[in-house]
Each structure stands twice: as structure tokens, then as C-alpha cells.
Amino acid sequence: MGFEEEEAIIRSYDGEADRARVEDLERRCEVGPAERVYLFTDTMGDPMCRIRNSPMYKMLVAELDKELIGVIQGSIKVVTVHGRPRDLARVGYILGLRVAPLHRRKGIGSSLVRRLEEWFIAKDVDLAYMATEKENDASVNLFIDKLGYIKFRTPAMLVNPVHCHPFHIPSNVEIEKIKVEEAEFLYRKFMASMEFFPNDIHNVLRNKLSLGTWVAYPRGESFGCDGQVPSSWAMLSVWNSGELFKLRVGKAPLSCLLYTKSSRLMDKYFPCFKLPYLPDFFHPFGFYFMYGVHRDGPLSGKLVRRLCQFVHNMAAKANKDCKVIVTEVAGHDTLRHHIPHWKLLSCLEDLWCMKALKNEFHELTKTPPQRALFVDPREV
């Protein structure tokens, strides 16, 4: 049996009055299914940090008897939807929905989502979408059963820990950092037809959190800035999410804890083996997000792996706070077989849900998935 909806006041976020209370709510609200891992978010004094880099954004709070009991965030951008550069849609992304534990199942979450959808509609948004874990029954029931969202895509979230031992990059592989202008040219040429490719990719690449774009190709071949590419090549960009917010694990499976302890002991007493181990996730940590991963050619799978190893080495050397490397690819994309990740830490079936806010976009929510999906780092 459900509960009656509470008559909460929903209004725009006020940084001066609400910042501390929203941060407190974040500390009390876990993310993730209880049977696996609880993640807690530390926004480091800026509760709007996850949406500030978007072209347009808004944050709403729910208040009851002067107590802040709920929060939601939303951002708006223009993306590719059909697979051709001219087929664009204005989409609204919903994230950061939190409701205080004592006020759940009382309609607060659905009220927050509906108010955010009203803002989307006022801003001429075509489609609203959100991402959650497939096992998050509360979120799935709210958006699909109650609010009319449709299961749209099931991408894979791949997570790889950062350890102290660097990977060896073979001498027959060339890895080169390219200029922002070159990266934008390549992305628009080779990836602009991907689902959800952001029309403002130039803003993503020029953001201070984007550490750069790298390409890998066989040594002895050349990579031209005019779009002439080698017989096999791969590229990706890196976003430093740890500069925005930190994560902390509040609960983990016993097997994970045992492996962490035993692997650290092995590394301490037998360092010559160079065994990877799980970092300390029980204190706040940052992460790098790899986006725009693309490959072409018969050797490109191996080149993707070398790029991922290069990013790992970069993280281990430059940022002691970075504990994991994360990326997300379409569920049917064979890229997942070439990106190093630990199944224990990864979510191989994330869930994207979508809702058409204009009649002409209803059919789009039912289209079969493309092989490739572009995940915007501003929405991680």
C-alpha cells in the first residue's frame, strides 16, 4: 500500500539559504542498490557542480515545515537523435533526484520530476531522459510505472581501478595528444551521427575539466590534422570528474573487502608480482571519465586498450586522488571488449529511460538502439 502525497513546497534552489541543507541531504542519501554498493556524493561546497557545465540548467528543492526533504537537477542541450547530423533534438536530462529517507514513498520524488518537466516544456524541450541502475527498483517504478517514461537504452558503465603499477605501452604504438580544434574536427567527422552526440562538442572539449584528447596508431604511420587517418587508429578524451565532486563507498560485498585486503598484503610483501589491487573506496575519491571513445581499422581494438592503459598511467602519476577510470558505451558496442574494466566494479547494464514531451517525438522513444552511443561527460 502506498502513502498519501505530502504537500511540500517546491521551488528553485537558493545557494545562500539551501547549500548546507542540500549537502546534508546528499550525505544522508545513498546511491545504488542495497545488495551491491552504496555510493555517497561529496559536492565539495557546490551542490550544483554536476550541472554547472551544461548549456542550460536548473535545480529544484522540496521543503516541508521548513525542512529541506528533496532535491532534483536538470540540464538542457541539443543532441543528435536519428543518426544523421541534421536530425537534432532538444533534450532535458534529469539527475540528482534525492528524497530524505523519512519522506520517501510519499510523492515527493514524482512532484519534483513533474515540476522539472514543466521547466523543460517552458524551454521548448523535445525529450526528457534519465539514467539509473537496472536494479534500482524504486527509481524504475517511479519513472516508468508512475511518470510514463520508457526503457530506451541499456549502456554499460565500465570501471577500472587505478593502482600504483604503470602499464607498459609497446614501442610499436604511437600515442599523441592532439589540439582541441583537431579533436573537434575528428569528432564531428566520425562521431556526429552517434546517438546523443552533443551539438556543442566544442564547449565540452574546451572546458577546463577536459584534460585533452589522445589518438593511438601504429608507429611508422602518420596522423594528419586534415582528417587523413592511419589504417588503424583510436581516439578518446578525458574528463576530470574528481574536480567537481568526490565519491565514497558506504557498503560493499564481503568478497570485495576480502580481495582489497589480501591484494594489498600481496603487493606489500611481493611487489615484484605487480598485482593490481582495489584502492581505498571508503574515503572520498575522484575519478577520470573517458568519453568520445572511437576506433577504426583491424588493429583498433588493441589501440583502444593501449589508450586506456595510457590514461591509467596518467591518472596514477598526476592525480593521487583519482582512484578509478570510468567510461560508458552502448550495450551492443563491441568496444566494451577492448576497454579494461573490473566486472566487480562495473555495471554492465545501466538503464536510460526517455519520455517524449512533444507528440512528434513519441516514435523516437521506441527506435531500436544503434551500436554506438555518445555519453556526455557533463552528465556523469
Rank of each mutant, 00 (worst) to 15 (best):
M1T: 02
F3R: 07
E4R: 10
A8H: 02
R11E: 06
R11C: 05
S12R: 02
E26I: 04
R28K: 14
Y38T: 09
D42G: 09
M44E: 10
M44L: 11
I51D: 05
N53L: 11
K58C: 13
L60S: 06
V61T: 15
S75G: 04
K77F: 00
V78A: 04
V78Q: 08
H82F: 12
D87Q: 10
G92I: 03
R98F: 09
R98T: 06
V99D: 01
A100H: 15
A100L: 12
R104A: 08
R104T: 09
K106F: 08
V113H: 06
W119L: 12
A122Q: 13
A122I: 00
D126F: 04
Y129K: 00
A131F: 13
T132S: 15
E135K: 10
E135I: 04
S139G: 13
L142I: 01
F143Y: 14
D145M: 09
D145G: 15
Y149F: 06
F152H: 11
P155E: 15
V159M: 14
H165K: 05
P166T: 13
F167P: 05
P170E: 02
V173P: 11
E181W: 08
E181C: 10
A183G: 04
E184L: 13
L186S: 11
Y187D: 14
Y187E: 14
R188E: 05
K189G: 09
K189T: 14
F190K: 09
S193F: 06
E195I: 08
D200N: 15
D200P: 06
I201W: 09
V204T: 04
V204Y: 04
V204H: 01
K208R: 08
L209G: 09
S210K: 04
L211H: 07
G212W: 10
G212R: 02
T213Y: 13
R219I: 04
E221M: 03
S222N: 07
G224I: 05
G224N: 15
D226C: 01
G227L: 13
V229H: 13
P230N: 09
P230Q: 08
S237R: 03
W239V: 02
S241K: 01
S241R: 00
S241Y: 00
E243G: 14
L244A: 05
F245E: 12
V249E: 11
A252Q: 07
L254F: 07
S255Y: 05
L257S: 11
S262F: 14
R264Y: 11
F273Q: 02
F273M: 05
L275R: 03
L275Q: 04
L275A: 05
P276C: 11
P276E: 14
F282V: 03
F285G: 03
G286H: 10
G286K: 01
Y291H: 15
D296S: 15
G297P: 10
S300D: 15
G301A: 13
L303H: 04
V304P: 13
R305P: 04
R305V: 07
R305Q: 14
L307R: 08
L307D: 12
H312S: 10
N313T: 09
M314R: 04
K317Y: 07
N319F: 10
N319P: 01
I325E: 14
T327F: 07
T327Y: 07
V329E: 11
G331V: 09
T334E: 14
P340R: 06
P340E: 12
H341R: 00
L344V: 05
L344K: 03
S346L: 10
L348M: 13
K355H: 02
L357R: 01
H362Y: 07
E363V: 03
E363R: 02
E363G: 09
V375W: 08
E379G: 00
E379Q: 00
